[in-house]
Design a protein around this nucleic acid. Structure first.
Lengths: 149, 149
DNA sequence: TATAAATTCGTAATAATTACAATATGGATT
DNA sequence: AATCCATATTGTAATTATTACGAATTTATA
Protein backbone atom coordinates (compact mmCIF):
# COMPACT_ATOMS: atom_id res chain seq x y z
CA UNK A 1 0.00 0.00 0.00
CA UNK A 2 1.27 3.45 -0.91
CA UNK A 3 1.26 5.39 2.35
CA UNK A 4 1.18 8.79 0.67
CA UNK A 5 -1.78 7.92 -1.51
CA UNK A 6 -3.59 6.37 1.42
CA UNK A 7 -3.22 9.46 3.56
CA UNK A 8 -4.28 11.71 0.71
CA UNK A 9 -7.35 9.63 0.01
CA UNK A 10 -8.36 9.74 3.68
CA UNK A 11 -7.81 13.48 3.97
CA UNK A 12 -9.82 14.07 0.83
CA UNK A 13 -12.61 11.93 2.16
CA UNK A 14 -12.59 13.85 5.43
CA UNK A 15 -12.79 17.08 3.53
CA UNK A 16 -15.55 15.87 1.23
CA UNK A 17 -17.59 14.88 4.25
CA UNK A 18 -17.33 18.35 5.73
CA UNK A 19 -14.85 17.25 8.37
CA UNK A 20 -11.71 19.07 9.23
CA UNK A 21 -8.25 18.23 8.07
CA UNK A 22 -6.27 18.89 11.22
CA UNK A 23 -2.57 18.46 11.81
CA UNK A 24 -3.35 15.77 14.38
CA UNK A 25 -5.38 13.76 11.90
CA UNK A 26 -2.75 14.10 9.20
CA UNK A 27 -0.06 12.86 11.53
CA UNK A 28 -2.19 10.06 12.91
CA UNK A 29 -3.10 8.72 9.49
CA UNK A 30 0.50 8.98 8.41
CA UNK A 31 1.63 7.02 11.46
CA UNK A 32 -0.89 4.30 10.80
CA UNK A 33 0.00 4.13 7.13
CA UNK A 34 3.74 4.02 7.71
CA UNK A 35 3.83 1.51 10.53
CA UNK A 36 5.03 -1.95 9.61
CA UNK A 37 2.75 -3.50 12.20
CA UNK A 38 -0.65 -2.54 13.61
CA UNK A 39 -0.48 0.02 16.40
CA UNK A 40 -2.09 0.17 19.82
CA UNK A 41 -3.84 3.34 20.97
CA UNK A 42 -1.01 3.86 23.45
CA UNK A 43 1.70 3.51 20.81
CA UNK A 44 -0.04 6.07 18.64
CA UNK A 45 -0.45 8.38 21.61
CA UNK A 46 3.26 8.19 22.49
CA UNK A 47 4.34 8.87 18.92
CA UNK A 48 1.83 11.69 18.48
CA UNK A 49 3.02 13.27 21.72
CA UNK A 50 6.40 13.96 20.11
CA UNK A 51 4.76 16.18 17.53
CA UNK A 52 1.98 17.50 19.78
CA UNK A 53 3.30 17.73 23.34
CA UNK A 54 -0.03 18.85 24.75
CA UNK A 55 -1.98 16.07 23.09
CA UNK A 56 -4.93 14.56 24.89
CA UNK A 57 -5.62 10.86 24.93
CA UNK A 58 -9.20 11.71 24.07
CA UNK A 59 -8.04 12.95 20.70
CA UNK A 60 -6.56 9.57 19.89
CA UNK A 61 -9.72 7.72 20.79
CA UNK A 62 -12.08 10.15 19.11
CA UNK A 63 -10.11 9.95 15.91
CA UNK A 64 -9.68 6.19 16.07
CA UNK A 65 -13.44 5.98 16.37
CA UNK A 66 -13.92 8.41 13.50
CA UNK A 67 -11.44 6.56 11.30
CA UNK A 68 -13.20 3.31 12.09
CA UNK A 69 -16.55 4.77 11.09
CA UNK A 70 -15.07 6.03 7.85
CA UNK A 71 -13.34 2.68 7.32
CA UNK A 72 -9.89 4.24 7.17
CA UNK A 73 -8.68 1.73 9.72
CA UNK A 74 -9.71 -1.56 11.25
CA UNK A 75 -8.97 -3.36 14.49
CA UNK A 76 -7.15 -6.57 15.09
CA UNK A 77 -6.47 -8.46 18.30
CA UNK A 78 -2.87 -9.56 18.71
CA UNK A 79 -2.21 -11.33 21.95
CA UNK A 80 -4.63 -9.50 24.19
CA UNK A 81 -4.03 -6.12 22.65
CA UNK A 82 -6.36 -4.20 20.40
CA UNK A 83 -4.37 -2.86 17.50
CA UNK A 84 -5.29 -0.60 14.62
CA UNK A 85 -4.16 -0.84 11.05
CA UNK A 86 -4.77 0.99 7.79
CA UNK A 87 -7.62 -0.34 5.71
CA UNK A 88 -7.03 0.00 1.98
CA UNK A 89 -9.68 1.48 -0.27
CA UNK A 90 -12.98 -0.37 -0.34
CA UNK A 91 -13.24 -3.32 -2.70
CA UNK A 92 -9.54 -4.06 -2.51
CA UNK A 93 -9.78 -7.51 -0.93
CA UNK A 94 -6.81 -8.63 1.09
CA UNK A 95 -5.21 -11.47 2.88
CA UNK A 96 -3.00 -10.44 5.74
CA UNK A 97 -0.06 -12.54 6.81
CA UNK A 98 0.71 -11.58 10.36
CA UNK A 99 3.92 -12.51 12.09
CA UNK A 100 3.08 -13.54 15.64
CA UNK A 101 6.58 -12.63 16.75
CA UNK A 102 7.40 -9.19 15.38
CA UNK A 103 3.76 -8.42 14.50
CA UNK A 104 4.63 -7.27 11.05
CA UNK A 105 1.71 -7.58 8.64
CA UNK A 106 2.20 -8.55 5.01
CA UNK A 107 -0.76 -7.66 2.85
CA UNK A 108 -1.59 -9.60 -0.30
CA UNK A 109 -4.57 -8.97 -2.49
CA UNK A 110 -6.66 -11.87 -3.68
CA UNK A 111 -9.88 -12.72 -5.36
CA UNK A 112 -12.76 -13.32 -2.96
CA UNK A 113 -15.12 -14.43 -5.71
CA UNK A 114 -13.13 -17.63 -5.80
CA UNK A 115 -15.29 -20.75 -5.35
CA UNK A 116 -13.04 -21.84 -2.48
CA UNK A 117 -15.48 -20.11 -0.14
CA UNK A 118 -18.50 -22.16 0.86
CA UNK A 119 -20.85 -19.21 1.24
CA UNK A 120 -24.14 -20.15 2.96
CA UNK A 121 -27.23 -19.44 0.90
CA UNK A 122 -28.99 -16.90 3.04
CA UNK A 123 -26.11 -14.80 4.19
CA UNK A 124 -25.64 -11.31 2.84
CA UNK A 125 -21.93 -10.70 3.10
CA UNK A 126 -20.63 -7.15 3.15
CA UNK A 127 -17.05 -7.57 4.31
CA UNK A 128 -14.53 -10.19 5.23
CA UNK A 129 -11.21 -10.54 6.89
CA UNK A 130 -8.69 -13.27 6.24
CA UNK A 131 -5.81 -13.22 8.68
CA UNK A 132 -3.13 -15.86 8.49
CA UNK A 133 -0.92 -16.12 11.55
CA UNK A 134 2.57 -17.48 11.51
CA UNK A 135 6.19 -16.43 11.45
CA UNK A 136 7.92 -14.29 8.88
CA UNK A 137 11.28 -15.12 7.37
CA UNK A 138 13.23 -12.84 9.69
CA UNK A 139 11.68 -14.25 12.86
CA UNK A 140 12.05 -17.85 11.65
CA UNK A 141 15.76 -17.20 11.11
CA UNK A 142 16.13 -15.76 14.58
CA UNK A 143 14.48 -18.94 15.86
CA UNK A 144 12.03 -17.14 18.09
CA UNK A 145 9.03 -19.09 19.37
CA UNK A 146 6.81 -16.60 21.17
CA UNK A 147 3.38 -16.70 22.69
CA UNK A 148 0.68 -17.79 20.31
CA UNK A 149 -1.90 -15.41 18.92
CA UNK B 1 -20.20 -28.15 16.50
CA UNK B 2 -21.41 -30.62 19.09
CA UNK B 3 -21.28 -28.76 22.39
CA UNK B 4 -21.19 -31.90 24.51
CA UNK B 5 -18.28 -33.38 22.60
CA UNK B 6 -16.45 -30.07 22.64
CA UNK B 7 -16.70 -29.73 26.41
CA UNK B 8 -15.64 -33.34 26.94
CA UNK B 9 -12.65 -32.92 24.70
CA UNK B 10 -11.56 -29.80 26.57
CA UNK B 11 -12.01 -31.38 29.99
CA UNK B 12 -10.05 -34.42 28.92
CA UNK B 13 -7.29 -32.21 27.61
CA UNK B 14 -7.20 -30.31 30.90
CA UNK B 15 -6.95 -33.56 32.77
CA UNK B 16 -4.27 -34.96 30.51
CA UNK B 17 -2.18 -31.85 31.06
CA UNK B 18 -2.34 -32.27 34.83
CA UNK B 19 -4.81 -29.43 35.24
CA UNK B 20 -7.92 -29.56 37.32
CA UNK B 21 -11.41 -30.16 36.12
CA UNK B 22 -13.31 -27.73 38.32
CA UNK B 23 -17.00 -26.98 38.35
CA UNK B 24 -16.23 -23.43 37.27
CA UNK B 25 -14.30 -24.60 34.23
CA UNK B 26 -16.96 -27.12 33.26
CA UNK B 27 -19.64 -24.46 33.40
CA UNK B 28 -17.56 -21.89 31.58
CA UNK B 29 -16.75 -24.21 28.70
CA UNK B 30 -20.36 -25.27 28.50
CA UNK B 31 -21.48 -21.64 28.33
CA UNK B 32 -19.02 -20.88 25.56
CA UNK B 33 -20.00 -23.98 23.63
CA UNK B 34 -23.72 -23.41 23.92
CA UNK B 35 -23.80 -19.70 23.09
CA UNK B 36 -25.06 -18.80 19.67
CA UNK B 37 -22.78 -15.79 19.55
CA UNK B 38 -19.35 -15.05 21.02
CA UNK B 39 -19.43 -13.89 24.63
CA UNK B 40 -17.76 -11.01 26.42
CA UNK B 41 -15.92 -11.57 29.69
CA UNK B 42 -18.71 -9.66 31.44
CA UNK B 43 -21.45 -11.79 29.91
CA UNK B 44 -19.70 -14.93 31.01
CA UNK B 45 -19.21 -13.50 34.49
CA UNK B 46 -22.89 -12.63 34.86
CA UNK B 47 -24.03 -16.07 33.72
CA UNK B 48 -21.48 -17.85 35.87
CA UNK B 49 -22.56 -15.80 38.90
CA UNK B 50 -25.94 -17.55 38.83
CA UNK B 51 -24.28 -20.89 39.43
CA UNK B 52 -21.43 -19.59 41.60
CA UNK B 53 -22.68 -16.60 43.62
CA UNK B 54 -19.29 -15.93 45.17
CA UNK B 55 -17.47 -16.02 41.86
CA UNK B 56 -14.49 -13.75 41.36
CA UNK B 57 -13.89 -11.87 38.15
CA UNK B 58 -10.31 -13.05 38.33
CA UNK B 59 -11.51 -16.61 37.78
CA UNK B 60 -13.07 -15.60 34.48
CA UNK B 61 -9.94 -13.91 33.22
CA UNK B 62 -7.57 -16.60 34.45
CA UNK B 63 -9.60 -19.28 32.75
CA UNK B 64 -10.10 -17.28 29.58
CA UNK B 65 -6.33 -16.93 29.42
CA UNK B 66 -5.87 -20.63 30.10
CA UNK B 67 -8.44 -21.61 27.48
CA UNK B 68 -6.72 -19.33 25.00
CA UNK B 69 -3.35 -20.94 25.67
CA UNK B 70 -4.86 -24.38 25.22
CA UNK B 71 -6.66 -23.17 22.11
CA UNK B 72 -10.08 -24.07 23.46
CA UNK B 73 -11.31 -20.61 22.58
CA UNK B 74 -10.32 -17.64 20.46
CA UNK B 75 -11.04 -13.94 20.52
CA UNK B 76 -12.91 -11.80 18.08
CA UNK B 77 -13.56 -8.06 18.06
CA UNK B 78 -17.17 -7.13 17.40
CA UNK B 79 -17.82 -3.43 17.52
CA UNK B 80 -15.32 -2.42 20.18
CA UNK B 81 -15.89 -5.44 22.35
CA UNK B 82 -13.56 -8.36 22.81
CA UNK B 83 -15.59 -11.55 22.55
CA UNK B 84 -14.67 -15.17 23.06
CA UNK B 85 -15.87 -18.16 21.12
CA UNK B 86 -15.28 -21.89 21.08
CA UNK B 87 -12.49 -23.06 18.82
CA UNK B 88 -13.11 -26.47 17.29
CA UNK B 89 -10.45 -29.16 17.44
CA UNK B 90 -7.17 -28.32 15.74
CA UNK B 91 -6.95 -29.05 12.03
CA UNK B 92 -10.63 -28.39 11.50
CA UNK B 93 -10.33 -25.31 9.28
CA UNK B 94 -13.27 -22.97 9.34
CA UNK B 95 -14.87 -19.98 7.81
CA UNK B 96 -17.04 -18.01 10.17
CA UNK B 97 -19.98 -16.05 8.88
CA UNK B 98 -20.74 -13.43 11.48
CA UNK B 99 -23.97 -11.48 11.54
CA UNK B 100 -23.13 -7.88 12.40
CA UNK B 101 -26.63 -7.38 13.75
CA UNK B 102 -27.43 -10.29 16.08
CA UNK B 103 -23.77 -11.41 16.30
CA UNK B 104 -24.66 -14.98 15.59
CA UNK B 105 -21.74 -16.92 14.11
CA UNK B 106 -22.25 -19.57 11.45
CA UNK B 107 -19.30 -21.91 11.11
CA UNK B 108 -18.50 -23.64 7.84
CA UNK B 109 -15.51 -25.85 7.22
CA UNK B 110 -13.37 -25.30 4.16
CA UNK B 111 -10.13 -26.34 2.60
CA UNK B 112 -7.26 -23.93 3.32
CA UNK B 113 -4.84 -25.81 1.07
CA UNK B 114 -6.78 -24.39 -1.83
CA UNK B 115 -4.55 -22.57 -4.31
CA UNK B 116 -6.82 -19.53 -4.11
CA UNK B 117 -4.54 -18.15 -1.39
CA UNK B 118 -1.41 -16.40 -2.54
CA UNK B 119 0.88 -17.53 0.28
CA UNK B 120 4.15 -15.58 0.34
CA UNK B 121 7.23 -17.75 -0.06
CA UNK B 122 8.95 -17.14 3.21
CA UNK B 123 6.07 -17.20 5.58
CA UNK B 124 5.59 -20.12 7.94
CA UNK B 125 1.86 -20.20 8.58
CA UNK B 126 0.56 -21.89 11.71
CA UNK B 127 -2.99 -20.68 11.95
CA UNK B 128 -5.50 -18.59 10.15
CA UNK B 129 -8.84 -16.95 10.67
CA UNK B 130 -11.35 -16.19 7.96
CA UNK B 131 -14.24 -14.09 9.19
CA UNK B 132 -16.93 -12.94 6.83
CA UNK B 133 -19.12 -10.15 8.11
CA UNK B 134 -22.63 -9.49 6.93
CA UNK B 135 -26.25 -10.09 7.82
CA UNK B 136 -27.94 -13.40 8.40
CA UNK B 137 -31.30 -14.31 6.91
CA UNK B 138 -33.26 -13.41 10.05
CA UNK B 139 -31.74 -9.98 10.41
CA UNK B 140 -32.12 -9.22 6.69
CA UNK B 141 -35.81 -10.03 7.01
CA UNK B 142 -36.17 -7.73 9.97
CA UNK B 143 -34.52 -5.07 7.87
CA UNK B 144 -32.09 -4.02 10.58
CA UNK B 145 -29.08 -1.95 9.53
CA UNK B 146 -26.88 -1.62 12.58
CA UNK B 147 -23.45 -0.23 13.28
CA UNK B 148 -20.75 -1.74 11.15
CA UNK B 149 -18.15 -4.11 12.56
C1' DT C 1 -9.07 38.75 10.12
C1' DA C 2 -13.68 37.70 11.86
C1' DT C 3 -16.85 34.07 12.40
C1' DA C 4 -19.17 29.70 13.43
C1' DA C 5 -18.73 25.08 13.83
C1' DA C 6 -15.86 21.35 14.64
C1' DT C 7 -11.86 19.68 17.08
C1' DT C 8 -8.82 19.35 20.76
C1' DC C 9 -7.52 19.80 25.56
C1' DG C 10 -7.71 19.05 30.57
C1' DT C 11 -9.64 16.66 33.87
C1' DA C 12 -12.25 13.21 35.76
C1' DA C 13 -15.27 9.22 35.65
C1' DT C 14 -16.11 4.65 34.25
C1' DA C 15 -14.93 0.11 32.57
C1' DA C 16 -11.68 -3.58 31.63
C1' DT C 17 -7.92 -6.20 33.04
C1' DT C 18 -4.30 -7.81 36.08
C1' DA C 19 -1.92 -8.68 40.67
C1' DC C 20 -1.43 -10.91 45.05
C1' DA C 21 -2.06 -13.18 49.34
C1' DA C 22 -5.33 -16.06 51.83
C1' DT C 23 -8.54 -19.71 51.47
C1' DA C 24 -10.69 -23.61 49.36
C1' DT C 25 -10.75 -27.62 46.38
C1' DG C 26 -9.53 -31.54 43.12
C1' DG C 27 -7.45 -35.57 42.71
C1' DA C 28 -3.59 -38.69 44.16
C1' DT C 29 -2.18 -41.52 47.98
C1' DT C 30 -2.79 -44.13 51.82
C1' DA D 1 -12.93 -42.34 53.46
C1' DA D 2 -9.33 -39.37 55.49
C1' DT D 3 -5.19 -36.90 54.49
C1' DC D 4 -2.19 -34.16 51.82
C1' DC D 5 -0.41 -30.97 48.54
C1' DA D 6 -0.38 -28.51 44.44
C1' DT D 7 -3.52 -25.94 41.93
C1' DA D 8 -7.67 -23.05 41.55
C1' DT D 9 -10.62 -19.71 43.42
C1' DT D 10 -11.75 -15.84 46.11
C1' DG D 11 -11.54 -11.06 47.95
C1' DT D 12 -9.49 -6.99 47.58
C1' DA D 13 -6.93 -3.62 45.42
C1' DA D 14 -4.02 -1.77 41.79
C1' DT D 15 -3.34 -0.84 37.16
C1' DT D 16 -4.62 0.03 32.53
C1' DA D 17 -7.94 1.15 28.90
C1' DT D 18 -11.68 3.75 27.39
C1' DT D 19 -15.23 7.26 27.54
C1' DA D 20 -17.42 11.76 29.06
C1' DC D 21 -17.84 16.70 29.14
C1' DG D 22 -17.21 21.66 29.42
C1' DA D 23 -13.74 25.10 28.14
C1' DA D 24 -10.39 26.59 24.99
C1' DT D 25 -8.56 26.34 20.50
C1' DT D 26 -8.36 25.78 15.58
C1' DT D 27 -10.06 25.04 10.81
C1' DA D 28 -12.33 26.49 6.69
C1' DT D 29 -14.65 30.06 4.70
C1' DA D 30 -16.23 34.66 3.77
Amino acid sequence: MNARKYVDRCLMELFNNGMRVTEQRKRMLSLVANSKHPQTAMELYRKMKRTFPGLSYETIYLNLKLFMDLRFIETILLGNEVRYRALPAVHAPLVQYICMDCKKAIQVSFDPSHPAFPMPEQFKSVNYKLDIFGYCRDCCDRGGSPAVQ
